[in-house]
Amino acid sequence: MSDLNRQRRRLLGAGLLSAALPAFALERPERPDGRFIFLFLRGGLDGLFAFAPAADPRLASLRPGLAKTVLSDGQPLGSTGFAAHPSCRALSDLFARRELAFAPCAGTPDKSRSHFQAQDLFELGNGDTRGQQGWLARAGEAWQGRFRLIGFTANPPLALQGATPPADLMPLAGSSLQVRQNRSLDAIMAMHAQQASGRALDQAMQTQAELDAIQGMDARAARGAAGINGFARSAETMARVLRDNPRLAMAFLDLGGFDTHANQENSLGRSLPQLGEGLLALKTGLGEAEWRRTQVLICTEFGRTVRENGTQGTDHGHGSLALLAGGALRQGGRMLGDFAGLADSALNEGRDLPVRVDWRSLIGRVLQDTQGFPLATLQRILPGLPGLA
């Protein structure tokens, strides 16, 4: 990393955690078969930007701006016909090591294109937008008190609603440089003019202004979730908590910042590297032995339109990208589900990716692999479960 980038990172801040490590009582040092970490990206990630079907000849015409970088500099994902955007290098490296799989057309049957309805349906996991319990709370009950749930959130998410006993909560927070434009700032900028520090300040201020605009658009869709900034630092502490507390068998984390109606290249170009770095920090913090028994499922409430819009962004869609990571994946290094291409006839309503992999089948597979739940238990946790991915 250059000196300029180091200065810029210091100026922007690196995501400081506000909560102390909880002290969980370990009456019995037992542990389940594995550990399940569920990461929900609120706002509707454009999966076609992150992992693009570069082999499809229609991609360039449907996304003349947004596909340029991945078509010229993307990292091929094996023989799938997809390529990872350069901002997803950490994710493509995990794929190459068979520690990551991806489903390009995952999601729920919801077609409302409403963040709130889609998120409710996803988190309840019962095929409805109403219910007394989230799917993760129902999964916790299946242990009959032997293990614990944790949410790395300030407030209980809907997925943990109705958990008995209630899930432990540990919010992860971040901070970044906040400087007001005034005479003091003008004096500081004058002192650092023509120096590397001055250029770093310029970049920091520009980045902060862009982040403020993005956060303003995305705040409602994020539902109070922590921003992606500083995720790598937060993941280090999250890993330490999980590693030191074997009874924390399942964890929930949500991150906001993915509602990209405009200026998507800049927005996701910053967010996606932090997602990958956070996943690597989680792997490192857990250690080799724990990583081998951990699976991380990363989902979003819906995808985006296949065609880019007039403001270099995308609008609410249907099917989207789901990622499954871990140290001992049976499905590592491959694509989950099928992909029928980008022809209008293959799309949902001629504009969005369809859903080829039901969200419950992804969750069910990870629950079976990490918690050892039989099919009858999975069907109680996920009513209407269509099959395992």
Rank of each mutant, 00 (worst) to 15 (best):
Gly174Lys: 06
Ala163Asp: 05
Thr153Lys: 01
Ser175Asp: 15
Leu160Asn: 08
Phe152Ser: 00
Gly134Lys: 03
Trp135Thr: 01
Gln133Pro: 01
Pro157Lys: 06
Gln144Cys: 12
Gly162Tyr: 05
Leu169Trp: 06
Gly145Met: 10
Gln133Arg: 02
Leu172Arg: 08
Arg146Thr: 05
Gln161Phe: 04
Asp128Val: 00
Met170Phe: 09
Leu160Ser: 07
Pro165Lys: 11
Gly151Met: 03
Ala139Pro: 00
Arg148Met: 07
Pro166Tyr: 09
Asp128Glu: 09
Phe152His: 03
Thr129Tyr: 07
Gly162Trp: 04
Arg148Pro: 02
Pro157Asn: 09
Ala173Lys: 14
Asp168Leu: 15
Pro171Asn: 15
Leu172Ser: 06
Gly145Ala: 13
Trp135Glu: 00
Asn155Arg: 15
Arg130Glu: 14
Ala173His: 15
Gly145Arg: 08
Arg148Asp: 10
Ala142Glu: 08
Glu141Arg: 10
Ala167Met: 14
Leu160Arg: 06
Phe152Asp: 02
Ala167Pro: 08
Ser175Cys: 14
Arg148Cys: 03
Ala139Gly: 00
Ala159Asn: 06
Ala159Asp: 03
Trp143Arg: 02
Leu149Pro: 01
Gly162Leu: 06
Ala139Gln: 02
Leu136Glu: 03
Arg130Leu: 12
Leu136His: 06
Met170Val: 13
Pro156Gly: 03
Met170Thr: 05
Ser176His: 13
Gly145Ile: 12
Pro166Arg: 09
Glu141Met: 09
Arg130Gln: 15
Pro165Ile: 12
Phe152Val: 02
Ser176Lys: 10
Met170Cys: 13
Asn155Met: 13
Met170Gly: 01
Phe147Val: 07
Pro165Thr: 11
Phe147Gly: 07
Thr164Glu: 12
Ile150Trp: 00
Ala154His: 14
Pro171Lys: 12
Pro165Asn: 08
Gly174His: 14
Ser175Trp: 11
Ile150Phe: 00
Asp168Ile: 10
Gly162Ala: 13
Gly140Gln: 04
Ala137Pro: 02
Arg130Ser: 13
Pro166Val: 11
Gly131Asp: 05
Leu172Asp: 04
Leu172Gln: 07
Ala137Asn: 01
